[in-house]
Design a protein around this nucleic acid. Structure first.
Lengths: 231, 231
DNA sequence: CAGTGGTCTAGACCACACA
DNA sequence: GTGTGGTCTAGACCACTGC
């Protein structure tokens, strides 16, 4: 009999059995009580082990149906939110920020649709550049809801970088990020020093604070940019 | 006093206090026993709530030192490894796979450099297309090391999809993925039905099995593709 | 060395999903 | 209905680490 004790031991043992094909993909595992008895520990311990394995995508758990080994062990990639300055300085380059434009407007229709805003919502619209060693690194097209973040109206954006200001000022509860490849238009090309039509790696980030839209940022990266993740 | 019960309630309440600046960044929070007493629940419940908040990067916990609100809430994005067929079928579209070319070659120089291969390493090179409802969805440029995966030589690649075959056949220990925007060349344009020079969202995935290189895949996505992650 | 979080236990009740 | 996982509790001991 395997005398296991910690939930880590239980996790490891379950993983071993899956890897050794003792519990092949798709198989229904024994219930928590049974495993607890076999391993000589409390059900809560087995529960924690299996809960974490489920979070990691190794197994699939459903009430009444039981626990199964996932057929496609969907491994997860994790990476941190890009903070421009940190990314740039990590490469040893010098970071520079510049504000290109600033205006207060009613939310345009496409933005209202994207954020589910009421008609006439006032927005702060900023366009900024982030440079690495003087080379264009990222163009930031930033929209901030003045309804949710009224204090944004009083900030000197020629000095403050909206990316960092929002992070340090305002927590957020939900966020979504979309990556895509887009073609540079005339204006974007001028900022990033690429020709019109050139492929641009684009991230569109939206954040909410308790259901209220906070900001939408479209980040356009300079030529040659790659986003890397290991797992 | 707040009579809370579930660990979700406790999490929410803690988050609320952080958001409302009752517990500002950097502040030392009360201990688990104290919070448990105040919220009217067991310490284990508070523990679970705080453990999850720590995992999510909201707070920082250390034995003896106590729990503090994180100054720089480094939130992490998680997303799953794309499995083409699953992605396509999830949208309700019909998936189709086609092999475009297959050859066995010595690893070219750029590939040897990328994977740290010995000179003269034999590679299997496949080019495949993945379609969604008949529309080009992804072009896959796949290189498999026959030194690490000799059995790949005997597979009928006109039927088997390398993406799924590798996942189900071979576990991997390390992987790296790089996202970028590239311009389609003539050939890629023909496969994806876009004009040469069009922006293409590109993922380059490399995997190793215990230090030995397994495969490198360059995945080129069709027009309009977006990779979405929530957190 | 003392205080905080980390974990285990045994028992209990609940919620959901399938028959 | 009935079985499985989901969660709570009260109490206990342990492990790390800052003082």
């Amino acid at each position: 009999m395997h005398l296991k004790k910690t939930y880590r031991d239980v996790k490891e043992e379950i993983l071993r059995r899956i890897r050794d094909d003792i519990w092949p993909p798709g198989m229904l595992l024994p219930g928590e009580i049974e495993i607890a008895a076999e391993m000589g520990c409390a059900r809560a311990t087995v529960n924690r082990a299996m809960r974490e394995l489920a979070e990691e995508g190794v197994i699939d758990r459903r009430r009444k149906a039981g626990t199964r080994v996932n057929i496609a062990p969907k491994r997860q990639v994790k990476f941190q939110i890009p903070i421009v300055r940190v990314d740039i300085e990590a490469t040893g380059a010098e970071y520079r920020y510049a504000l290109a434009s600033r205006e207060r407007v009613d939310a345009p229709d496409w933005l209202r649709a994207r954020l589910a805003l009421a008609p006439g919502t006032r927005m702060l619209h900023l366009e900024c550049m982030h440079y690495a060693d003087g080379q264009p690194y990222q163009f930031e097209d930033r929209w901030i809801s003045l309804a949710t973040v009224p204090s944004a109206a009083d900030v000197d954006w020629s000095v403050e970088n909206p990316n960092e200001w929002l992070l340090k000022t305002l927590p957020f509860t939900d966020a979504e990020i979309r990556f895509s490849a887009t073609a540079a238009d005339e204006k974007l090309g001028r900022f990033l020093l690429v020709s019109a039509g050139a492929p641009v790696f684009t991230a569109e980030r939206t954040t909410w604070l308790a259901e209220k839209p906070v900001t939408l940022a479209r980040l356009f990266f300079g030529a040659g940019y790659q986003m890397v993740a290991r797992y």
